[in-house]
């Protein structure tokens, strides 16, 4: 018995050695769910003012063109509810559905390869498509159902606040620029002088499914138009 116990301990020792070796090889991007030590200067967020939105879908079209999003999938959707009231006084409510750039992102937590990651410098949740194997775990894990498999690259894709297309050139996201009623505001949460922070301080806003602990960074300003719904 003594012998077998020692052998067992030896085996456990080997397991531990393996585990520490693994610590070296694991992906550097993967630990991004833990808070960054140095607090970065930038934390991007977006506000959708549902009072201003008219449901024209200009944001969807602009995003499709700028970010080369193929037909059949979309990085952003505008969900319509209603109509409320009697014709001709009818009204609708519109709400934006797109990546919420969660601070505690479930998609990042579950991704086996670290392909889904949070850019620590900007707080943007993005996909490194070179690493993505298409297991779709992130798609199932995202409570907002905004991720999809890009039909051409066959990797996971979603809104990245135009990180690679427009932000790289110092421009505002395509959807923000395209909106005819200025319903979308994009900016830096850490900058008290930004339009985004000023808007959030001026009007009450809500975020979707905060009870899941995802700490989303897509804010909505609720419309008071229409009916009271239970």
């Amino acid at each position: 018995m003594q012998v077998s116990k020692r052998q067992f301990l030896k085996g456990v020792g080997a397991l531990l050695a393996g585990a520490s070796f693994y610590g070296v090889t694991r992906s550097p991007q993967a630990d991004s769910t833990q808070a960054a030590e140095a607090t970065p200067e930038i934390k991007y967020a977006m506000v959708h003012d549902e009072n201003a939105c008219i449901g024209c879908n200009a944001c969807i079209d602009a995003c499709r063109e700028v970010n080369h999003v193929p037909d059949g999938v979309s990085r952003v959707k505008i969900e319509r509810s209603g109509p409320f009231g009697e014709y001709p006084e009818q009204s609708y409510r519109f709400s934006r559905v797109s990546c919420q750039h969660c601070e505690a992102a479930p998609c990042v937590r579950v991704c086996p390869t670290g392909a889904a990651y949070i850019d620590k410098a900007t707080g943007i949740v993005a996909v490194n498509s070179d690493r993505c194997v298409g297991c779709q775990y992130c798609i199932a894990a995202c409570p907002y159902q905004v991720r999809y498999i890009h039909p051409e690259t066959r990797t996971a894709d979603k809104c990245d606040f135009c990180q690679k297309s427009r932000l790289a050139k110092g421009l505002e996201p395509a959807c923000v620029e395209a909106c005819p009623t200025k319903a979308l505001t994009f900016g830096n949460l850490k900058d008290p002088e930004s339009d985004l922070v000023k808007l959030l301080k001026a009007k009450p806003s809500y975020r979707a499914k905060v009870d899941l602990g995802t700490r989303p960074k897509l804010f909505h300003i609720q419309t008071i138009d229409g009916e009271i719904m239970l």
């Binding site: 397991l15 693994y22 694991r26 630990d31 579950v110 991704c111 392909a115 297991c135 775990y137």
Partner: peptide
């Protein structure tokens, strides 16, 4: 997988917070 030929990436890259990644480790062992 949507990219079956990239399977090796699950073996090479790890993410401690991912159940799938840890599960693959357990499967190999």
């Amino acid at each position: 997988l949507t990219r079956p030929l990239d399977f090796w990436k699950i073996l090479v890259f790890y993410n401690t917070t991912s159940v799938m990644s840890m599960g693959v480790l357990v499967l190999m062992a």
